[in-house]
Structure formats: C-alpha cells, structure tokens
Design a protein around this nucleic acid. Structure first.
Length: 481
RNA sequence: CGGGGUGUAGCGCAGUUCGGUAGCGCACGUGCUUUGGGAGCAUGGGGCCGGGGGUUCAAAUCCCUUCACCCCGACCA
C-alpha cells in the first residue's frame, strides 16, 4: 500500500516558487474560504471563521478589561453625514459603495454603505455627550464594512470584510493620545502573544495616515515573501471629527469644549497574516491560540478492538482539559489523514494504535517542526497543554527570526532599493512627502512606520536616505500588501 | 481603468487547427480486501461544452455579440 513520497500528489504550490499561488491554494484547499459569486467578496467557511471567532473572543476580552463596551451602529450612512469631515470624505470617496434606490423608488439622498463608522458614531456621540461627566465614552463594534476595491485577495483585501472598530471620545488631546497608545499596545500584545506574529509598532507618515486623523499608529508584520502587512491601526483623531460632527461637552468650568476622539481597528486581514507568516510547503500552520482545532486524534487500525474506544476516551479527556480536539474516525487511510491535517495546520497530531494502547502511550507529532514523540497516556492533558505552549512560543521565535533575516539597515538609496526587494529596510528620512513619493515610484516600497523602538538608530546616519538633507525620522520601508 | 489569459461533470483538464455519438484524471455511490505517511480490485451515477444570435443536413468546434472569472500593473485595512 505504501507509496514513496515522490509519488504523492502535490496538493499545494511551493512557497518559494510562487507565494501568491501558494497562498490561494492553501486557503482554498483547507476549507478556510471559497470564492463567492460577487466579485471581491469571500465566503468564510467554518474552519476559517473559527479562527475569526477565536480572535474575537480573545481580543474582546482585552477590550472589556480596559473598560470598553460593545455596541452596534447602522450600516447605511446618509451622504450628507459622510460629507461633514472633508479630509475623511476625500480619502474614502473612491472606495465607497452607494445605495441609490429603496425598492423601486429612487432615494432623495443616497446612502453610503459604511467603509468605516467614524461619521455615524460621531453623529451619535454628538447627541450623547453633554458634560465632562459623560466622558470618556469607550465603545467598540464588531461588524462588516465595504470598500469598493479594484483588486482583491481573500482575507488581505476583500470588498466586504469583518472587523472591529473602536471609537472613543475624551475631554482633551492627552487623554485621547493615551487611549490611542493603550489600544495599539493591546494590538501589539495580541499579535505577538496570540497570533505569534512579531510586529513593528510606530507612527504612519502624513501620506499614509488615516483620512481625517491627526496621527495614525500602526503595527506592521513581515510576510515570508518579503512584503509587509499592516495588521492593525490606532488613530488619534484630535478634535477633527468632533468639530465636523459637533461633539462637544460643558467642562467643569462651564465652558463648551470640543471632544477629542480616537478610533482603532483590526480586521479579518489578520487571518491572512497568520497564514502568510507561519505557513509552510505542507500547508497551514496555526499557532495554538488561534487554531480552531488544537489537536487531532487519529485512531490507527480503527477496526481493531478497543482502538476507537480509546481514541474517544482521549478526546473526552482532552476536551475536558480545555484542548480543542477533533477525532478523525473517517474512513480514510492513515497516510491521507496525516497529510490532510498537516495541510489544515492543526498544531498537534495524536496517533493511537494497538501498539500504543499496549504500551499505555500515544504518538504525538508537532506541526511546527514535525517532531515525533511518545507520550504516556497518564497525565496526557498536561503534556498536551505544555506542548501547545511550546508550539506557540516556537512559532513566534521562528517568525521573529524570519523577520530579522529580512530586515536591513540602509544609509544610502542603493541599499534601500536593494533591501526593500526582500523585506524591511530601516533608514533615516527627511519627512518630506516628495521624498516618500519618489522612493515609492523608484522602488515600489512605501513608508510603513516610524518605529517607537529606535534600536539601530545609531547605525543609520543623520541624513535622508533619498535626498541627503538632514533627517527627521527613523523609518521602516517595505513593499506592502 | 490599461495589458494578458480562461470559461467543457463537484474540482483539474483534453477535445476547437480541419464541424460528424461528450472524453480523461481526481472526487462521489456500491461491494470486497485494506488502514503506523496520500490504498487495491470490481462496478455505477453524474454535462443546456458560460449566455444570446447566426452559418450548416449537422456546432464544444466556424462567425458575430455579450457576460463572468483569473493573473500582472495603477489604487487600498
């Protein structure tokens, strides 16, 4: 029955040869997503949605712990409402989808389908906030938004996507700034601890910042093909939206003041990041904390007496110990199952066969390094949980090493141009938009962020990597998704 | 929106040059043997050949037209 590995059908493209093709193959063949009949919209299948649910649960707990409450605001935004913040409208206008008819009747005023909700929420905050006693207002909503994109790719850029958007209102700029940073830090911790993705946090350039924001902060991750992915943003909106939507309060001194607002968001794009950072040529690799299935039990020689029963017993034990466990008792060959579950990225595979039962042990294989080990059935719960923690940490370390190997310093333009072909480039920058645009035109790379962590600053000199004028900022450059 | 490509079974494709019974692989159903790295044999089901119009005795195939999707660019979480 056993064929050599060479004869096995190649199910997925190699990452090294064609990363985009590998990405598409993997997500389609592992029941993550499907293409829908509407261009640019994806269908998230249960396995893919399971990842999103785990993200939601864990992130939402962080929001609650910092005093935020969930709410829901309308999908439709009247055009007049959208128009109140000039910069914002200008930024989003090219990608807004409009509703022009209700039934057979043309609407007197067309309705935008929210590309983001600052406007609707701002108009409500305007009604709700009267006094300094009402502040701060800390809300979040989990919802879908629509941006009419010209080119799309599942998870990374879809016309409709799921996200969370936090919106807060504060009495002054400083409090808004604190909130902006607090949420960015929650995102950073989430990325690194839960998704096992190391990120660079910092501030966006004026060109790249959110339309209507005073300052945009971001976390940027490096993918295996050398392109950067923005995984989350946090904006200090200053009093821009408060002025546009008339969000005011009476201060303790009885003066009418504008609020200062923030917004912050992360989306299903993060799932694309998880796939592109951790995946390998065998398929997906999920960090345990976002793995819909953390351990799969494969009964070997199922027809033999006691095997299936033992497998079922182990599943009950592991589930009771909080491990998301699947028992694959399907009528497939063992080899097929091995490959299938590896492709789906399940962190641990547990094999139970007659030999194991005789020895009171199981065979456990880690997805991250494919190491095989015998584990006693006694105390299996703890062993598995410990192994899951190991895999979680191992994946982070591996991803960090990958990113570091793709990050270089540049003190002149040639080094920058070369470095951005394969990853991040740290360099000094004058802060001028013309320079930023010229670099993009010449290299295809954009400014990703001005990092808070200025390690390596001393190695970068003091002049702009492009124009040679005195530098103002340390900047990460990269090609981006 | 520019440039390139593809539409034939659930999926991947051949057939189109030169019109003549709708094919292959995988998947799926059934039976038996298998099960520690993608099983074997037997047997079976499944098609408005993207849509519309033409030419012809006859169209997956030729002509006209339309629609959809994919890839590469420009724009974007």
């Amino acid at each position: 029955m056993a064929k050599s590995n060479e004869e096995f059908v190649q199910h997925i493209a190699s990452r090294a040869e064609d990363f985009p093709q590998w990405y598409t193959d993997v997500i389609l063949k592992t029941d993550m997503v499907d293409y829908s009949d509407v261009k640019g919209c994806m269908v998230i299948k249960p396995y893919g949605y399971g990842v999103w649910e785990l993200i939601q649960q864990q992130m939402d707990a962080k929001f609650k712990a910092t005093g935020h409450k969930n709410a829901y605001f309308p999908l439709f935004i009247p055009e007049s409402l959208l128009l109140k913040e000039a910069e914002h409208v200008e930024g989003f206008a090219p990608e807004v989808a409009w509703v022009t008819h209700g039934g057979n009747e043309k609407l007197a005023e067309r309705l935008a389908i929210r590309p983001t909700s600052e406007t609707v929420i701002g108009s409500m905050y305007s009604r709700w906030i009267q006094s300094y006693r009402d502040l701060p207002v800390l809300m979040n909503q989990w919802c879908n938004v629509v941006r009419w994109e010209k080119s799309t790719r599942p998870f990374l850029r879809t016309s409709e996507f799921l996200w969370q958007e936090g919106h807060t209102a504060h009495a002054n700029f400083e409090e808004a700034q604190e909130e902006t940073m607090r949420m960015l830090e929650i995102y950073r911790e989430f990325a690194e601890k839960v998704m096992a993705i190391p990120v660079i946090v910092g501030r966006k350039s004026e060109k790249e910042k959110f339309a209507g924001a005073q300052a945009t902060y971001t976390m940027e991750a490096m993918m295996q093909d050398g392109k950067a992915l923005q995984m989350g943003t946090s904006h200090n909106l200053g009093d821009n939206f408060a002025r546009g939507y008339d969000i005011t309060y009476l201060s303790k001194e009885g003066k009418l003041e504008y609020c200062f607002t923030t917004s912050w968001g992360t989306s299903t794009r993060m799932i694309g990041g998880i796939i592109m950072v951790h995946g390998d040529d065998r398929g997906l690799v999920f960090p345990p904390r976002v793995a819909p299935i953390q351990a799969v039990i494969l009964p070997i020689a199922m027809h033999k007496e006691g095997v299936l029963e033992k497998a079922q017993e182990l599943r009950v034990r592991l589930e009771a110990a909080g491990v998301r466990t699947e028992l694959d008792d399907s009528d497939q060959s063992a080899g097929w199952k091995f490959n299938q579950w590896e492709m789906k990225g399940v962190p641990l595979r547990i094999e139970v066969g007659p030999k194991d039962i005789a020895n009171n042990q199981v065979v456990v294989v880690r997805r991250d390094n494919l190491q095989k080990q015998f584990v006693p059935m006694d105390g299996l719960e703890k062993s598995i949980n410990d192994l899951l923690d190991d895999v979680q940490q191992g994946l982070f370390d591996k991803a960090l090493a990958m990113r570091e190997s793709k990050t270089v310093n540049a003190t002149n333009f040639d080094q920058l141009a070369e470095g951005v072909q394969t990853g991040f480039v740290r360099a000094m920058w004058c802060g001028e938009r013309e320079c930023e645009e010229a670099i993009k035109a010449k290299t295809g790379a954009t400014t990703r962020c001005m990092p808070f962590d200025t390690t390596h600053r001393d190695e970068l000199g003091d002049v702009c990597v492009h124009c040679g004028k005195p530098a103002k900022h340390m900047m990460y450059f990269a090609k981006a998704y």
